[in-house]
Design a protein around this nucleic acid. Structure first.
Ligand SMILES: NC(=O)c1ccc[n+]([C@@H]2O[C@H](COP(=O)([O-])OP(=O)(O)OC[C@H]3O[C@@H](n4cnc5c(N)ncnc54)[C@H](O)[C@@H]3O)[C@@H](O)[C@H]2O)c1
Ligand SMILES: NC(=O)c1ccc[n+]([C@@H]2O[C@H](COP(=O)([O-])OP(=O)(O)OC[C@H]3O[C@@H](n4cnc5c(N)ncnc54)[C@H](O)[C@@H]3O)[C@@H](O)[C@H]2O)c1
Lengths: 214, 214
DNA sequence: TATACTATGTGATTGTGAGAACAAGCACAT
DNA sequence: ATGTGCTTGTTCTCACAATCACATAGTATA
């Protein structure tokens, strides 16, 4: 049963993406001791229109006071509670190289995501910790996934190595894979794959620049 | 003058993104010696519908033969020519740490993007090469940008360091910034900023999973 | 308490992209 | 030469997301 059914209609995917951004922005306000914010403050910081912020928040409830704005602590708390009610955001990273290490370190600053473990096939890397995250050999893959009920995995290994690992991830119960290798992946129905690539983004920005310039 | 004006109407941003993916996919076909492909072959590999592939390609011209499909070499060549006509895709990376290094190495495999230089404020890192890419101190920033007419920069330094660097990038003529630090950035009108973050994506996938499960 | 003011929340409208269905055109066999 | 089969290119429809406009409900002030 979907524990988020109390959220009435289907929530746009774009709204979900922005929501995470708002929350990070709110945490900053909170840290800076700001008491109240207007939808327009959040909007400016996140580069969207204030009406978008209000509409997005309205999918989850009424948090503001008309004529006044939003209480930062309260809004933060309510959104966090909602997120926490979905359970912990646990994940694993495959590949403890430069990229994998950078991601693990990154997760220690200001994120909700817990990286439970990393995996590497190189014996020099296994058995150690990276910033508190244990690095295991691939033997342990299935056990760790099942013990921790992991549903999401991040892949940061060379492209040619990807498919066999994906197959193991899927049969161990992973439902969503984020691949940093830009290689098409075969997965059965019901498993979601997304790709993530800095250089693709650069190339996209390049195309965009070339369309806009006068 | 926009050198891509021959592309008639405004091309959807989603189409531009997918186009890059198609091209990478086609390069693989070419390398594997495949002669012709159908829109459906490309579609399956890229995880979209065949009608989307055809529509996307149709923004740029007619490349296929009805009843037969697309000639891989020809399609590759025509798309590459189009891309090349826009000039080289040059960029720089700020921060030669784990992440910056991973990106530089990554750029050597199968991408159109040339990373012209990296910059770091740590004297231990400057003056060396990473996989053929020189690492300079920040002193050289403006010179390199202007000499090479760089328009796009990738930022891979700690969040607290970002804003001053951004200011320098902007006044040196950078038009598009890809930040890997999730901190709101102030830039003048006309400069585009995008953010890119693996862990945000994980959190988004988490939300999506929680909305879909039965 | 009344009045003006301010910012939220939401219903209505517009715009845009995805998908399906169909028309068009080429290759090949007969 | 002509017909058949196949896949492209394109049109049309639908769904969804962004935007707008305004009613709503609080605050502040006199
Ligand atoms: N998407 C992006 O933006 C992006 C950016 C940089 C790099 N990359 C990709 O990420 C990959 C890793 O980059 P890196 O800089 O960390 O490289 P790296 O060489 O530093 O690390 C790769 C690690 O993966 C491990 N490994 C290899 N095969 C494995 C397997 N089958 N199972 C488990 N571990 C395995 C290696 O032992 C090594 O520790 C690169 O191949 C590149 O394609 C993607
Ligand atoms: N968006 C993502 O997906 C993602 C993933 C991993 C890390 N990160 C971010 O990227 C940053 C870098 O990660 P890393 O693992 O490479 O860290 P790192 O410590 O290995 O490297 C940081 C590098 O930046 C250099 N630097 C610091 N300040 C600088 C300045 N003002 N100008 C030029 N260079 C400067 C340092 O000398 C160092 O070499 C992290 O702070 C993290 O926030 C983002």
């Amino acid at each position: 049963m979907n524990r988020m059914n109390f959220i009435k209609p289907a929530i746009p995917e774009t709204t979900l993406r922005r929501l995470l951004y708002y929350m990070r922005c709110l945490r900053t306000y909170k840290k800076d001791g700001v008491k109240t914010v207007l939808s327009d403050n959040i909007a400016k910081k996140c580069g969207v229109k204030s009406s978008v912020v209000r509409k997005d928040l309205s999918y989850f409830g009424e948090f503001g006071v008309r004529g006044k704005g939003y209480d930062v602590d309260e809004l933060c708390h309510k959104l966090d509670t909602m997120l926490n009610s979905l359970g912990p955001i646990n994940t694993i990273v495959i590949g403890a190289g430069k990229l994998g290490t950078a991601i693990i370190n990154h997760s220690k600053e200001n994120f909700k995501t817990n990286i439970i473990a990393a995996f590497d096939k190189n014996r020099d890397k296994t058995g150690k910790n990276i910033n508190g995250v244990p690095v295991y050999s691939l033997d342990k893959l299935e056990d760790i996934i099942k013990e921790n009920n992991i549903k999401i995995a991040v892949i940061a290994i060379p492209p040619c190595e990807v498919q066999p690992v994906v197959d193991r991830l899927v049969s161990a119960g992973i439902k969503s894979i984020l691949s940093l290798a830009l290689l098409p992946i075969n997965v059965p129905e019901g498993v979601e794959v997304s790709f993530f690539d800095v250089l693709s983004e650069v190339e996209y920005l390049f195309l965009k620049l070339n369309f806009k310039e006068s």
